[in-house]
Design a protein around this nucleic acid. Sequence first.
DNA 1: CTAATAAGAGACTTTATATATCTATAATAG
DNA 2: CTATTATAGATATATAAAGTCTCTTATTAG
Lengths: 128, 128
Amino acid sequence: MKYSKATNYALHTMLFLAMETPNKPVGVHQLAERQNVSPTYLSKILTKLVKEGMINSISGANGGYTLSKNWEDISFLDIIHAIEGKSSLFDCCLYSNPECVIKDVMLSAEEKLENELRNKKISDLVKK
Amino acid sequence: MKYSKATNYALHTMLFLAMETPNKPVGVHQLAERQNVSPTYLSKILTKLVKEGMINSISGANGGYTLSKNWEDISFLDIIHAIEGKSSLFDCCLYSNPECVIKDVMLSAEEKLENELRNKKISDLVKK
DNA sequence: CTAATAAGAGACTTTATATATCTATAATAG
DNA sequence: CTATTATAGATATATAAAGTCTCTTATTAG
Ligand code: SF4
Ligand code: SF4
């Protein structure tokens, strides 16, 4: 079990954008170069962030990506969910079993992880 | 990112063994049947638990698996680590960067998850 | 001792997912 | 119109998970 590289790229891109001049679009080429990843692949990842409303994309010359208006509220968990999906880490075969003991432990542990990631925002990393 | 099925099988097997008469070996065939998994595959998973000293295996007629002496101390985290390995969930490209901000957040969140899993033991599920 | 039983080991196959790449299309600034 | 830049979809490659098969080793009931 590991976070995907795509999640890593998404987090770094958000951090880069947060450190840039606001409202000035940054092209995927530049973002990809800083992370040693192909622009087309990064583009595909960033499109997920666009669809979740975390960043805006601007086509055409001088286009690129900018952070969305509400970017200061975006948490690590939001970004991870956008890339990895929102389903639980633990797949139980019988969700209907109300007596289940294993599931409770696994889900409560996952909740601790998510709480921490929900409380950390990209904007926390920028404000010094 | 998801826990593997192998982890699921390992957790369930530990729970089954904990509910059985102590010291009476349970064969892999029986354990596999209860989980709808092939015996040879489950065997491969259980061998990992044997190597970590969590369970004992007994060959030959009337053989099978028993919990190890210290089984009451075995945590969820121990079992998960035995199957999934102990490496971090977050792979950072530059571990050497002391200024890293993303890594700190990811590792501290993982720590919260692990703390919870470390505090929950299989024996907690059996004692009523 | 022998035959049946049961775990372990290694090679292999299959399936699924992650990680890309390639090409074509759409939007926009100048 | 043309150069630039994002988006979409098909395809390809790599890696890992999940499962099978066969042979070996250990134990014990009889
Ligand atoms: S014990 Fe819980 S985790 Fe296991 S099969 Fe039942 S419901 Fe699922
Ligand atoms: S910022 Fe942190 S996570 Fe990102 S490359 Fe640097 S050390 Fe790694």
